[in-house]
Design a protein around this nucleic acid. Structure first.
Lengths: 230, 230
DNA sequence: CGGGTTCTTGACTATCTTCAACGAAAGTGG
DNA sequence: CCACTTTCGTTGAAGATAGTCAAGAACCCG
């Protein structure tokens, strides 16, 4: 999952994914991973791609001095594990118990064996590129407050639970994960959330649940329309 | 071209590209664009992909309030124009007169017509994803000085001219382009370059040419090793 | 319940941006 | 080709935003 730019055309959900229509089970196996487990490490040869069915994954990349970037969270529907010259290019571990569908990497690299699956995986890779381009905008050009609002907005659209006027969003990752995803510190994430709470845009229920009280205001803030807090 | 993380394995040059070995000319046409011309706009249907042969392209994305992100520069060897649901997802214009090789988009979307070209384009898309993941780290986790040093380092590896101890890098884009690529302001880019000049890491020759005087120091600075200026 | 972790908040600092001025470079028209 | 205009780049000063450091509160787990 990336922080994409909301548009009127696409509801919001462009990201690496497969169509819901059932693909042939050939070359695919469903597997379960417990929270904390690693699916792969940077540099591992890619053996398969993963479609998240339930749960949440975390893809990270590290610098030698310890700085970390969370590349993406893997939410249900996301495809994870595209090879770069045959190798994984990030670490990937499990934030919340996860079921994945595995697809043999050969389906991506070789078009002859299962052309339908192959084409779907290629389309997923292309959507991944598009979603990452939007994420660049967020990382390079948005303020801390806008980043946090954008993040909550995307989550609320992708996995939020409808509660009448409001939407409930679960944040199973910790503040450091959010910070490393948005290019901030944990303190800044915390302060931005507190500010949204003070402005009555959200309510924080426990640490891992956020109620979006005013979705339109949140979306406005995600685009820098500070007027929306009024 | 993205700001990738230098590694000992890959010299540096992983990015969307095709092998130098000549591909069949089927489905491909060479075309010339003058500086200032647009190859496509966001939302245009994708008719072909472009391999930059000579010159430099610029891919950008805009927010409604005018903020801009330069998604990538297109240097010789780069592949530009991957479709997202069949549409272009950025604007693309020409920074310096450019020759491109055009590949029919069908070669990417349809594996049967020209399987060799299709596979090469898929590999290029996957390398694009890998390069963008590294770029996330730069945007999210590097300081202004590190960003500018990283940018110069990548350029020097990709298109720098060997001058004995030194390397000459051309910067045909203006400071605003560099700023919008790195997530900075023009002033900060300018100040960072001036600092590198004061530290005798680079020499600025005219506005659009930088001589890398101490490549190892530059690479160190790109990773935050401030010790390297000594 | 207790100990360790994570989260929040405050005070302070550093970094980067903003605003402004000036000079250099590039474009334009006579 | 030169004078004029405009754009672009650099630098300084001031301000804002986000980061750092530190302490206490909330949360989690055995």
């Amino acid at each position: 999952m990336y922080v994409t730019i909301p548009g009127d055309k696409s509801p919001i959900a462009f990201h690496a994914r497969l169509p819901k229509a059932k693909l042939k089970a050939t070359n695919s196996i469903e597997t379960f991973f417990k929270a904390g487990a690693y699916l792969f490490y940077e540099g591992d040869p890619v053996k398969c791609l993963y479609e998240v069915k339930t749960g949440i994954l975390r893809q990270t990349r590290l610098l030698e001095d310890g700085r970390r970037q969370v590349i993406a969270f893997g939410y249900p529907g996301d495809i994870i594990g595209f090879p770069v010259d045959g190798l994984h290019h990030t670490d990937c571990d499990v934030l919340a118990d996860t079921r994945v569908q595995r697809y043999n990497h050969a389906a991506l690299e070789n078009s002859t064996r299962d052309p339908v699956l192959h084409n779907e995986l290629v389309q997923a890779a292309l959507r991944e590129i598009g979603a990452m381009q939007d994420h660049f905008m967020m990382l390079g050009r948005k303020s801390a407050a806008e980043k946090v609002a954008s993040f909550l907005w995307v989550l609320s659209e992708r996995v939020g639970l409808d509660q009448g006027q409001c939407r409930l969003v679960s944040l199973p990752m910790n503040r450091a994960d959010i910070a490393d995803f948005l290019g901030l510190t944990t303190e800044t994430v915390s302060r931005s959330l507190s500010q949204l709470r003070k402005d009555k845009v959200i309510a924080i229920e426990g640490i891992h649940n956020v109620m979006i009280l005013r979705p339109k205001a949140l979306r406005g803030l995600s685009e820098g329309l500070d007027v929306m807090i009024a």
